[in-house]
Design a protein around this nucleic acid. Structure first.
Lengths: 211, 211
DNA sequence: ATAGCATTGTGAAACAACTCACGACTTTTA
DNA sequence: TAAAAGTCGTGAGTTGTTTCACAATGCTAT
């Protein structure tokens, strides 16, 4: 399968989720136009995105929901479960643990780590919480971590994760962590997101007109 | 001031924060190369970003931290405080309320809303929590909202926010909310971010080499 | 002073993503 | 069966962003 643009890849889970909803509603067909309105992505972009996987639709008809969904399930490895570790069970971490039950997910948080003795040994939503000291012992072959610790801890823990052979980190701390090139890091910086929104509001006025 | 590329605008808060750190450390000069290593952005990109604001550096020397910082302070409206309302005081919402105290921020959450009677009337980190029924009464001229409610509530609350004249929404629900064109919405979908990371890990192998 | 070094600022090229617009084909309607 | 309507898939153009690479210039050391 040829390489898909990254921008497209980021939209796939969105499409997948919506198609799932449609299927549950019993809808069997959908057009790029309908999809567009629901997920707020231009219909031409949606058609282009789908076209990277071949001709999935029928002219004059649209897309068959079941077929499309089956296709995405394979493509997104929706069958295969990726195990994830959560580091840092503060408010943000806890939010993730509750999120965990979200359907249509090929990922599962299978363990969490913290230092708070109140939390160690308990579980949240079925996910056990271990002491961070036991990281190496418990981690086994988990390859993906969500980092929701205080920024000051980020570097030290990253180093341990890398040492253990982690492959991907979803970093919610403001620290820009340093990793070897074979480790993929996605940064989500909540403070920056808010500041960026505010900046755009002030400097990039939107149209005055209606929805 | 001419329009700055959006990609650049999103990086400004990052630069700003790091420069602030440098200043606190007493450093008075910095090069694009150093900056690059710290924030993980290519040094040419940093120079290009800065160049949109004019010639801020000195060849052969780098940038003066104080000067640069002063410049950004103005540019990012760092003096002006933007008030923000938080809708939904679950785990994620609570995380934001604790975040609130983050320095170097031109934004402040000044009120929060929920339906849980346990929470109404209390405050978290100094931010009062009101009942969502009182949204219109309390909101006053707050123009920006962070939406951390269950997905099922997203549309109804969005409508009320829009009706009240909100200008920007940072949406953490998986729902793709519908708003008039003059309202700016940024979506942050935690589940999608995780799935995208996993997808990239499987389909976009990184170099084997060292950091 | 002067030589050598470091670093910026930017033109131009490369890359990535989005959007338009339309031909081709299918479905629907009458 | 024929005409009309709907929708995909995509070539080509557009826009936005990153990166290269180097001349210009100021800094540092002696």
């Amino acid at each position: 399968m040829a390489k898909i643009p990254q921008a497209t890849a980021k939209r796939l889970p969105l499409y997948y989720r919506f198609l799932n909803n449609l299927q549950h509603q019993g809808k069997s067909r959908v057009s790029s136009k309908e999809l567009s309105e629901a997920v707020k992505v231009d219909s031409a972009t949606i058609r282009r995105d789908f076209s990277y996987f071949g001709a999935l639709g029928k002219k004059g008809y649209g897309y068959n929901v079941d077929y499309l969904l089956g296709f995405f399930r394979k493509t997104l490895d929706q069958d295969e479960l990726t195990e994830v570790a959560l580091i840092g069970v503060g408010n943000l971490g806890t939010a993730f643990l509750h999120y965990n039950f979200l359907k249509n997910n090929n990922t599962k948080i299978v363990m969490a780590f913290d230092t708070d003795p109140e939390k160690i040994g308990t579980d949240i939503g079925g996910t056990p919480i271990y002491h961070i000291d036991d990281l190496e012992e418990k981690l086994n072959d988990v390859r993906v971590a969500i980092l929701t610790v205080p920024a000051t801890e980020a570097d030290a823990i990253t180093e341990r994760l890398v040492e253990h052979g982690i492959e991907g980190i979803l970093n919610f701390t403001p620290a820009r962590i340093t990793v070897p090139r074979h480790v993929r890091v996605h940064h989500i910086d909540l403070s920056i997101e808010l500041q960026a929104l505010v900046y755009f509001l002030k400097h990039y006025p939107l149209e005055k007109t209606e929805s």
